[in-house]
Design a protein around this nucleic acid. Structure first.
Length: 270
DNA sequence: ACGAAGCCCTGCAAGC
DNA sequence: TGCTTGCAGGGCTTCG
């Protein structure tokens, strides 16, 4: 459940069900996620009211008066609201039981996700402190990308997936945005013009917004597993090796950049 | 500072 | 059918 649109969809689905609610108990079934879950979480969050559920990049911030629970879903994590009586199943690691008689349940088979408890300002937490701008807020545009890219020779695809440049652009949407902007994914980040970076910034926003809209309709109720497929039919190049490019008809090529699967049209993307 | 590679972990599909 | 291999939407850490 990884990329920004899925995280935002989760936030919108879960937020209204927990904000203003009191935490009755925190159950930890598996402490060993990417980092161990702090033993303080259970005592310090119990009895607290949830003040807000916010998102920063792909992190969710569950705020209370005593501290903030920073959640990351990694590659396979998902959050669901379940009835209080439901027993934990395979790969359920953390439950937060609310006075609404519902549980917020974290499931993550690969355990690449995280649940970090902090009493301090979560935006200054070591994991969040260096994050770049939100792509869907002000402060993200072609000028920002040009400035960050100056002198950098890494592939532009790796560059836009760097969370210190801009948050929330994962592998799928990096591929899609570069296709939309007509930029070849392997091109050196520092060699791209301001005009083309402006197109790329627009493409990133467009792709993410469309995905949020699609996720918002498909995943509105969280009763089932919440896994995609859902936006897949709308993907132009990701996962479409050999298929005709939707713009020119030439086959979509697959390669690896930075160890990640990369899809592009050699004719439309330069 | 930057960039590439390794690694964390499980599940699944493809290939033999 | 059963085994092995590679791959998966993230991102931290290490190394050169």
């Amino acid at each position: 459940m990884p990329e920004l649109p899925e995280v935002e969809t989760t936030r919108r689905g879960i937020g209204p069900q927990i904000v203003g609610r009191e935490v009755v108990r925190v159950d930890v079934y598996q402490r060993h996620l990417r980092w161990p879950i702090s033993p303080r979480l259970q005592n310090e969050l119990r009895g607290q009211t949830v003040d807000a559920l916010e998102r920063r990049g792909k992190y969710l911030l569950l705020r209370s008066a005593t501290g903030t629970l920073i959640l990351h879903l990694g590659m396979t994590g998902n959050l669901r609201m379940v009835p209080a009586t439901w027993r934990p199943g395979r790969h359920d690691h953390l439950d937060i039981l609310f006075d609404s008689d519902r549980r917020l349940r974290l499931n993550d088979s690969r355990r690449f996700g995280a649940a970090l408890w902090t009493r301090a300002d979560p935006l200054r937490h070591p994991r969040l402190r260096h994050l770049g701008p939100e792509p869907l807020a002000g402060g993200f545009d072609g000028d920002h990308l040009v400035t960050c890219a100056a002198g950098r020779r890494c592939a532009v695809k790796s560059f836009i997936m760097d969370a210190s440049v801009v948050v929330g652009v994962g592998n799928i949407y990096a591929n899609e945005a570069l296709f939309t902007a007509g930029i070849s994914p392997g091109r050196a980040a520092g060699s791209i013009s301001r005009r083309r970076y402006s197109l790329l910034a627009d493409a990133i926003r467009k792709v993410l917004q469309e995905a949020i809209a699609a996720g918002g309709t498909t995943l509105r109720d969280f009763s089932v597993d919440g896994r995609p497929g859902f936006f897949r039919t709308e993907l132009k190049v990701y996962g479409r090796e050999g298929d005709p490019c939707p713009r020119c008809g030439n086959p979509v090529h697959k390669l690896k950049i930075g160890q990640r699967a990369t899809f592009h049209c050699g004719h439309c993307q330069r």
